[in-house]
Each structure stands twice: as structure tokens, then as C-alpha cells.
Simulated scan of single mutants.
Amino acid sequence: MKLFSSKLFCWALALFLCASVLLGFNLATGRLSFLTNGTGVLVTPVQQALTRAGNFVSDVFGYFYRYDSLVEENQELEKRVQELEQKEREYYAAIDENTYLRELAGLRRKNSQFEYELAEVIGLSSDGVSTTYTLSRGEKDDIEVNDAVVTGDGLVGYVSSVGYNFCEVKPVTDISLKMGAVISRTREVVVAQGSYDLAEDGLLRLSYLKNDSDVLVGDTVETSGYGGIFPKGLLIGTITEVLPESHGISTYAKVKPAAQLDSLKKAYIIKSFTITE
């Protein structure tokens, strides 16, 4: 028959017999034949390579999955941190506002005839001699030029110009300012004013002191109420030094402002008060 005499059949039969012999050998001895071992030697590295490649691909996909998860988690954490930071800012802003409101309540109890307007410092300009503060209240809040400006510590200055929703304030150290004042302890009447020589040091000048004046370093100075701009009794500052005038006729003193002008954040504008003539 042609089927049994063909080369293909012969090769197939030979392979079948060979496989049968190898299988019988493996079953009978429990050991791998030389051919099986050889095949394993050749196939095993390929299997290892395929396994490693599969593991690598799995790790790559796992990495990107974990990366995406981490990115999403990080975004969520950043959002949470921003929310917490905003709440923290609101918390401290509320505390700050409450502090100023308590201070304002104290000022109103002390001077019930004054009408106050709480304002925030929104700008500051200075050329080394003259300083101007910009506050967040203006014409719409009934603020007017020459309104006095104070803090809980003392007198800040006066309103020098007014816009619709802001105003500009000159401090007590400004060279344009000159006001009636008294020494709190001795009640000696003097003049407090800004000075070119002292403005850079953040001080103002107390002029027209008598040579035999009983003024001492540490004495406080307050507004006298004369002149129409500032009400009576506002604390101006503390005397730091008493010196003779160059002409020798009188004495002058250096005064440190009571208000913390270098760290001013909010202030109170006195919109109305009783003028002492």
C-alpha cells in the first residue's frame, strides 16, 4: 500500500515509536530520558524568558495603575490640605477680627461720645521722611479729611485725603502735623509736631517746654483738644529724651508714638467728637 510506503508515514511512525519508548522508559524508571532532558534544557530558558516578560508586563501595568491611584490620592490630599489651610486662615482672621472688635468696644466705653469706623490698612508708601497709610474706608463710610485715626494704643494720625472707598492717613510723625498737647503728669501745655530730624527715627518733637519744666523721660503726652482736629485725651506717646533748644530760651523733648506705626494693620477712624474750644 502507498500509505505505508510513503516517507511521511515512515517518519510519523518512527516519531510515534520513539515517543512511546521514551514514555515507557519514564514510566518504568521514574527518570527522564536523555532526549527529554535535552528538550527541557532547550525549552526551560525560553519558558523562563516568557515568564519574566509576563511578570515585567504585569509589573508595568501594576505600576501605572498604582501611579494613577497615587496621583488621584495625592490630588485628594492636596485639596484637603488647601481646605484645612483655608479654614485655618478663616479661624485666625476671626480671632483677629474679634480682638479688634473687643478693642473697639473698649474705646467706645472709654469715649462714648466718639463715633468710630474700623478700617484695614490696605496700602503703605514712604520716602524715608513722609509716610502715608491707605485705609479701607472712604466717602461711602462718611469719612472726611482731618478725621482723627487711632488704635487701642494711641493716636495714629489724621485723614489727609479721601476717596470713594478708601482714605489716606498721615501719622503723628509726619512733618505736616502740628497739634496742641499736654504732659499727662504735669498738665503742662506744649506743642507736638513732626520733624525732619526725627521722622526717620519714627519720633516726633515736643516743642515750647519751659527751661525749668518738670518733664521727665517716661512721661506720657496726650492731645489737649485745642485746634479742632483731635479730641482731647488721646495718647500721643512717651517722652524718650529732654534736650535744650539751640537758642537756649526753651527746651524740647523727643516723643515715641504710642501707636505701633511700623506694624499697623487696622485702625479706628473717629468720624465725630465734641470739639473743645
Score class of each variant (00 low, 15 high):
L261H: 11
K254P: 03
H247W: 11
D212P: 06
G233V: 07
V191I: 14
M179R: 01
E245H: 11
G225F: 02
R185M: 10
V190G: 02
K232W: 11
K266Y: 12
V215S: 07
R205G: 02
G233T: 06
V182W: 02
R205T: 02
L204I: 04
K265T: 07
V221A: 09
L209W: 01
G248F: 10
S263H: 09
V217I: 14
V182L: 09
S184M: 07
G225P: 03
D197K: 05
Y252H: 12
E222K: 08
D262Y: 12
S246Q: 14
P257F: 09
G228L: 02
R185H: 10
E200R: 09
V242D: 13
L234A: 04
Y252F: 14
P257T: 02
T238C: 05
G228N: 09
D197E: 14
K232V: 13
L203K: 06
G180D: 10
A192D: 02
I236F: 04
P257M: 05
T251I: 12
L198F: 07
E245I: 03
A259H: 01
T238N: 05
P257R: 03
A253V: 06
V255G: 01
Y196H: 15
G248K: 13
A253H: 05
L234T: 05
T220L: 08
Y226L: 09
S263V: 09
R205Y: 11
E241Y: 14
G202K: 02
L264D: 04
S207V: 15
